[in-house]
Design a protein around this nucleic acid. Sequence first.
DNA 1: GTTGAAAGTATGGTCGA
DNA 2: TCGACCATACTTTCAAC
Lengths: 165, 165
Amino acid sequence: MSGHKLDPIDRKILMELQDDGRMTNVELSRRVGISAPPCLRRVRSLEESGYIQGYHARVNARELGYEVMVFAMVSLKSQAGADLAAFEARARGWPLVRECFMLNGEIDFLLKCMAPNLAAFQSFLTDHLTAAPNVASVKTSLVIRAAKDEPGIPFEAMDTVADNA
Amino acid sequence: MSGHKLDPIDRKILMELQDDGRMTNVELSRRVGISAPPCLRRVRSLEESGYIQGYHARVNARELGYEVMVFAMVSLKSQAGADLAAFEARARGWPLVRECFMLNGEIDFLLKCMAPNLAAFQSFLTDHLTAAPNVASVKTSLVIRAAKDEPGIPFEAMDTVADNA
DNA sequence: GTTGAAAGTATGGTCGA
DNA sequence: TCGACCATACTTTCAAC
C-alpha cells in the first residue's frame, strides 16, 4: 500500500478485474494490450500493494435463502472513542451484519443486514442489536428492491467528461 | 435460476468462491473434497443457474482517488410506479451512485455514493440528485469509517447454531 | 516488455459406482 | 446421475534477454 503512481495500464487492469475478477491472465493481458507475463507481474504487484484487496463471487442471496435486506440506523448513548470501538467490535461479530459504517450526523452507524426472513431479522434486532450496550435507538428500513448494485468505484467516470457525475 | 436443490458440496463451493473468487478450480476441488472435473461442472452449473452472478475484484477506493463514501436518503414527491421507475433509471445512470435501494417507510431510496472528494459529491448533490424531477428531499450522511464491509451472505451462520444471529 | 519453455490448470471424453 | 481418471489444450509463471 503506498503512493506508487499507477499508469493507465494498471488502471485498466483494475477496471477489468473489478468487472470480471475471474478473467484469465491471458484474456486480461489481451484486453489491456500487453503480453501475459508483465500483466501477471502487474496484477501481483497490485495485490501486494493493496490496490486489489480481494476477489469475490457474487452469489444470489435470495436463491440461497437470504430473502431480506434491511438497513439499521443506530444511535448510541455515548460516542466516546472506546464506546464506538466497542460497538464496532460487536457489529463485526454479527454474521448477519454485512456492512457497518460510522456516519456523521445524528445516526452513528448504518448497518446493512442480510437475513433469511423478517422473523430472523426481528429476533436479531430485539435480542442482539437493540439489546447491545450503549445503543440508544435503532431505526430499520426494509429493502423493497435493489435498483442498482454495483461493486467498487466508477472507473467509467475516470475516463469520461464527468458531466453526469 | 430455479429451485435446483443445492447439496452441501455446492454450498461449500459458493462459500469458497464468495471468499476467494479467483481460486483455481484445482484448489477449489481440493477444498470441497471432489476431483477437478466434476467441481468445474458444478461451478459452471451454478453460474448458468444464476446462483453465481459474477466475480469481482475489490479495489482500494481510497488509493484510487475515491476518498469519500456518502449515503443519500431520498424522498420523492410521488411514489407512483412510473415515478419510482423513473427515479431508479436516473440513479442507474449516475456512475457515482454505486447502490440504490428502494426502502419502506419515509425514505424512498437509499443511495450509496462514491466520490473523489466532498466537493465532487456536493456538486453531484446540487446539480443532479436534488435537481432531479420528483425529488422532495435528500438527507446525506458522510461515512467516517467502515467498521465492517463483507460481501454477500453469511455462510458461516448456515452451518452454525445461529445464536449470535 | 518480449520470448520461450516448464509446470500447473481447465476441460472434454470415457468409464465405473 | 455423479464422480474418477485420462488426455489434450490452455494458462501461469519463471528465466533470460
